[in-house]
Design a binder for these strands. Structure first.
Lengths: 209, 209, 209, 209
DNA sequence: GATGAATGAGTCTTCATTCAT
DNA sequence: CATGAATGAAGACTCATTCAT
């Protein structure tokens, strides 16, 4: 019984890993089901026991990858959290951390970006009870609670705005170097993000607005 | 001789129009060369006399469409320019104008967005000597000159930032209504854009900051 | 012991019912073993414990369905038998009764017709000792004995002729309305059947021959 | 120009011939597009230039085959027409002629029978202006005109009835020998057909009724 | 007896591109 | 210049059947 379950997990993992590697290296369109099962060492029909089609496995991989990205950023923040007492510094830290990872592994950026919708993203960072772990959205709200001096007009819209801005500008600068290099863009991006955050803050103690 | 040239232009136009309609209605992937030539009423081989492949015609159409979008926004601004003396109001006007058009014709947004790179965009708004008309980049610089009270740290990066922010957030809100509707997003987006502009302005004479 | 037997019968019935419904609604070719076992709520391997393949269950279902059709017609005749003292009226009654049922439930007609061979039909109406009940062929012969004024050249060939004529003409008229509607065809069909019967009768009292 | 047209005809013919042979020998379900193009010596894509799918070529082949069958029967009748002055003898001759051909080439019977609908049949014998030749339906009406002593209640329904009876009984007897051999069935079938014809005749001069 | 995961051959269909006319 | 018939590789997906548990 346990053996069957183990075997299923092995096959599922092999398919995920195989598809992830191929999507990264060759792109989604250039990857066929045939390639995926071949590399995974399973039969073609087996693929369809676990996934509806290529876009099903793609979406699940994007969700997984996105989740890992955000969680690793948050865990890195936890280690150094004393260095970033201010809310906006935490946000900048997380954005920087993620973009640096994407800059290092450009394939992930290419894979994720053009296929990521906010709907899919939200699924990813809400963690869908897949694991019992806490998810990124929880952390986001915890961060807000930890900084009671900061009250936002609309926390979700602000997060959405920042993520869209960061991902679309980094996509172009990291992958194409257009219109400037990622390194050159970075300070401008950070300042824009800070400006967006300030713009969302409602607080009597905030005189900079 | 001129007749031959006319005939060529007619075929070219027919191919452009046919491809545009099909890309809009069915998407690029779902449109085949067969469909395009069929609708255009020319032979399959003829397509290859004018275009390298499907992605060639796609890129040229995106450039054309983007150019039209920006130029129509600028021309609308010219009509009402007295209402928008401030630089940032002009920018907001243009962004609003374009997004409202995309909201009205969602197909254009879908067509352009996922296929638009900054490189292609720059080609579009630089107008590539296709026509002798003035191009959008010229207008952008003229707008800056007309408002000498405003000096920007980096005009191109600012434009890039605004365009990426506006296009990626509007894509999600207009097409998916995620995470909020386009209407709900709009005021937040405008404020974020203003914040980005303020952030780019360096000028002692600017008291509006 | 009996419980095991009951359980087997339950599974068998579930498979029959599931296959019957699917064959009716989607056709035989469009129905897979997967569909059948899914609907029946049993495992795929179980199917092969009871049936050789899809065509095995199909044939058994056709035989069952055909048998029911003929027996219900005969039982209806028994209730009103005084109204039909003549042999040919009895035959006409049975044919009408069956065709009216098929006209009401066209799915059954489609299911049975294209898959029914005389061999399978004979198996069905001979009832193969599946049950201890009397079968349709017995009734047919009883009907003949009850009308000693009627002697047929070849009773089985006559039955075969009538059944083939009735089933093939009704298939086309009921399902396609070709070349005329079932209602329009009916009087002609009945007269043709009567003509065939008369043609088979050898009897000194029969001067119409 | 003519060369291209010739080449097209050659490919079309090759596909027809290849499909016909394979359908005959292996059945329709057991024949794949791959088999057809392979045998025809053309590429797979070529098939789709000429036919929508397998069922398109099947239907066209059935129509062709049926047409040939009926026309050869009629031409044979013309040669011996003096032997068959009576209308019903002509019909019997044609039925016999066709069934004898089907008995000789059982594959044709198998191919045609289970796939022939009256709609398709009518298309076949009406000849659809494919050729300029006269079609079977014309002959049928000519036969009726040549025998003014015979007036039928409904000529099309009569033809339909006879064809359905003949084809379905011969299918079973020729291919399965069920319930009797074709040879044994033949006289009964002929008599049944005559009975059906008599039954359709309305004529004061007809004393045989 | 019952299960259902795994198989992998087999099928249809699409389509960009070429090239003889 | 223009045509459009022909290509054939490539891809997605299905499904009857087996067999270890």
């Amino acid at each position: 019984m346990g053996k069957v379950q183990d075997n299923k997990q092995i096959k599922l993992d092999a398919l995920f890993k195989s598809a992830y590697d191929l999507f990264m290296n060759n792109g989604i369109e250039k990857t066929s089901i045939h390639d995926i099962v071949n590399k995974a060492g399973v039969a073609k029909g087996t693929f369809y026991l676990y996934f509806k089609d290529k876009y099903d496995i793609r979406d699940r991989l994007i969700a997984q990858t996105t989740e890992k990205l955000f969680m690793s950023a948050y865990h890195a923040l936890l280690l150094d959290q004393l260095l970033y007492p201010k809310f906006e510094d935490k946000i900048i830290f997380i954005v920087d951390y993620i973009l640096d990872q994407l800059n290092t592994n450009k394939m992930i950026l290419r894979f994720i970006y053009k296929n990521l919708s906010w709907g899919l993203f939200r699924k990813a960072i809400f963690n869908d009870s897949l694991t019992n772990e806490i998810n990124f959205m929880d952390f986001y709200h915890k961060m807000l609670e930890e900084n009671p001096d900061v009250t936002l007009k609309n926390p979700e819209i602000m997060l959405f705005t920042i993520i869209e801005l960061a991902s679309s500008t980094s996509y172009s600068t990291i992958l194409d170097g257009e219109p400037v290099s990622y390194e050159e863009m970075k300070p401008y991006l950070n300042e824009s993000i800070r400006a967006i955050i300030h713009n969302h803050i409602i607080s009597e103690s905030n005189f900079t607005q």
